[in-house]
Design a protein around this nucleic acid. Sequence first.
DNA 1: GGTTTATCAGTTCCTC
DNA 2: GAGGAACTGATAAACC
Lengths: 88, 88, 88, 88
Amino acid sequence: MTNTGINNGQLRSIVERIEHVQAEIEDLKSGEKEIYLESKSAGFDPKIIREIIRLRKKDPNELSEHEQLVQLYLEALGPLPLFEHAAE
Amino acid sequence: MTNTGINNGQLRSIVERIEHVQAEIEDLKSGEKEIYLESKSAGFDPKIIREIIRLRKKDPNELSEHEQLVQLYLEALGPLPLFEHAAE
Amino acid sequence: MTNTGINNGQLRSIVERIEHVQAEIEDLKSGEKEIYLESKSAGFDPKIIREIIRLRKKDPNELSEHEQLVQLYLEALGPLPLFEHAAE
Amino acid sequence: MTNTGINNGQLRSIVERIEHVQAEIEDLKSGEKEIYLESKSAGFDPKIIREIIRLRKKDPNELSEHEQLVQLYLEALGPLPLFEHAAE
DNA sequence: GGTTTATCAGTTCCTC
DNA sequence: GAGGAACTGATAAACC
């Protein structure tokens, strides 16, 4: 037997558990992909669907004090222009 | 009622199904993260664990192919020095 | 001489040119970091500064036909609620 | 005039200086990308080139340290099999 | 196949 | 200095 100073059983258990959960994740992703394909068949634009999902994830209530600070700085920079891409 | 020309029920169904499967994926990812934390508590290096997982996913053949190419390029660059940190 | 089938001089040239441009990038990043430190000394919040920079990068003119499609889908999903985090 | 309590000129200067250095960085990155494309045209594998660059950046000592740890873990998991794709 | 997008790992910075 | 958050860089995936 080779004693590596490592608890082999524990390591093996950890690795296998991670691999197992990753396999489950892969299955779910396959399912998700199928739904997108299905939506395409139904005449929807998957790209738009994706954006819908993304938008719905965002918390619309984002007027925190942080946002207020950002606003303050923006105002300090002047009303406009907000950006100057053409100015280079 | 606003008729948008879209089958609302079908769209809603699709969106909700996707969101549901995504929620499940998130749960599994949380579980995975916990296992990594647990491995850390047990004295393992999560970074190494990750690499182990990665290696086990790969086909050993393509692995060696890649390694051989790297070796070939390194040799073409000359035997040494491999790097020149002191040369700045 | 070891003939690897590789144009060594060309490979070396490519590698060194990339390393050179990367070194220049690193210098510039150092400069950027200094400006952030300076802004901190001047009493500004670097975190907010970063967000300002990010906002100014975005093109405010984002009302494309794409956005309109998204809007159409959102409307089809119903006026509200836009998202349902609590519904899980 | 709106007095926000912020030194507007100073803030503006900081923001513009950061944006300027970031623009320079972007230019250099574009140049780097071109070199990679060029290397591809010359028959080199950009992925391998990237790894070469990465290896040359690393201290060879810490590199072998890492490798040794990976090896130790792999051995602890048992001689073989390294992976079990067929076992599902 | 090639371009763009999204996910992911790695690094760094900041906080406690 | 340990943990967590933000940014960057790289891999993988999706659309054309």
